[in-house]
Amino acid sequence: MKVLTLNFLTCAVKACKSSSDSFPLHPKDCELVSDELEVNSALLTNVLTRVDWKALTTTAAELGFPTLPATPPTPEELAGDEKMLKELHTLLMETQINEGKLVCGHCGHEYAVKEGIANFLLPNHLV
């Protein structure tokens, strides 16, 4: 599961969705792998305008990556900075959570990630 994906996921429990504590989910005991992927600069540049940068900063820090800049690069900055584009590509698109858990900061429920696939099916008592 890509680091980018985490920016678009929250807890599946309905009561958690209105709480700001449920986003982003917190990675726990995660094994990371890197999957090589071709850079698509149009995709990355435009996706970045939709990314919650604060949440991404939290996720990156929790996964042990170097601190991200305080604000996201603008499309213009990105167009002139191939190194930054490549670094963001590596973090968002190539870095994968292969095994581990994603924890809701509101209810504490842990979603398992196995072989790169996160499972959000809820146990009966949480439905």
């Binding site: 599961m1 996921l9 929250t10 969705k17 696939i117 996160a118 959000f120 439905v127």
Partner: peptide, 27 residues
């Protein structure tokens, strides 16, 4: 999950196991 395993191979996208009536996405 067997279908999601197949779906997850389509780059640059993502695939997760979830129930349509309890989607883990922000409103």
């Amino acid at each position: 999950s067997n279908l999601v395993k197949i779906a997850s191979q389509h780059q640059p996208h993502a695939a997760i196991v979830a129930d349509t009536l309890a989607l883990p996405h922000q409103a």
